[in-house]
Amino acid sequence: MGNVLAYCEFGGSTLKSSALSNLSFARAAAAAHGGEVIALLVGQGASAAGADAARYAAKVVVVDDAALEHYLAETHAPIVARLAGEHGASVVSATATTLGKDLMPRVAGLLDAGMASDVSKLAAGNQFVRPILAGNAYSTVEVSTDVICATPRQTEWPAAEPGHAGVVTTAPAGDVDALGAVVERIESSKSDRPELTDAKVVVAGGRGMKSGENFKVLEELADLLGAAMGASRAATDAGMVPADWQVGQTGKIVAPELYFAVAISGAIQHLAGMKGSKTIVAINKDPEAPIFQVADYGVVTTWEKAVPELIEEIKKVKAAR
């Protein structure tokens, strides 16, 4: 016992950046439990990313099977649960992405394990600090089962640094039973911009942008800065921009170096998703908007005036470099 089985998402031949946060959590948990980190890659094509995973963990287990073409909690959870037993894991973790959040409670159900969701800090081997009430408080929970499941929050755990020359082994998928579940299709929202949860800079707009057409100027600012686009729930609910741009308690949790909140009033719901950002800039015509309470820099003005000017000024700075 004492090992940490870290389920890692991958794309092609590399781990996703979200997996690197999980590995840094896993290292902390393994140190607390006196065990080692075992990175687990599950899915068709997983073998290709084994070498990359071996840079971060002494042991890598790959389960690569044609029956695992699409991720399904029904097929992945039994594999994770079985390998947790085979590898003496006392902690089983996955980053709290939509996949990790779908998968890990199912693994906990199969293992009869207690679980800590959205872990932001490890207080002790079996004590986890995690946000509750939309991030308005942090709770420390003690989980007393022999095996513990956990989903570390990506924004709270830095990406693990490479430094291992790990050993990659393979494990069989076993009987793959999807319980009748099938992925019929995925409508992907591909864009050339960085992923919202990975971006160093995020430009987000709110209800005050009034229409999707008006977001174009924000997109121009985003592209100038190499930023991802975000939005408040009010803007996505109104159909101005795609739902997967939503930042907040019910959307994506982001913590970029720089966050622009433009025409966003700053509902608790939204703040829960972005207040971990390093520098927050708020542009809003209402001086009383709650967003100014979390902003490092606030400008009271309309977006119509501010954003084009911002673009010009940043272009000047870039040209001077």
Partner: peptide, 10 residues
Amino acid sequence: VIVEKGVELP
């Protein structure tokens, strides 16, 4: 098996 040990404001 999951017990709250304490709560803090951020």
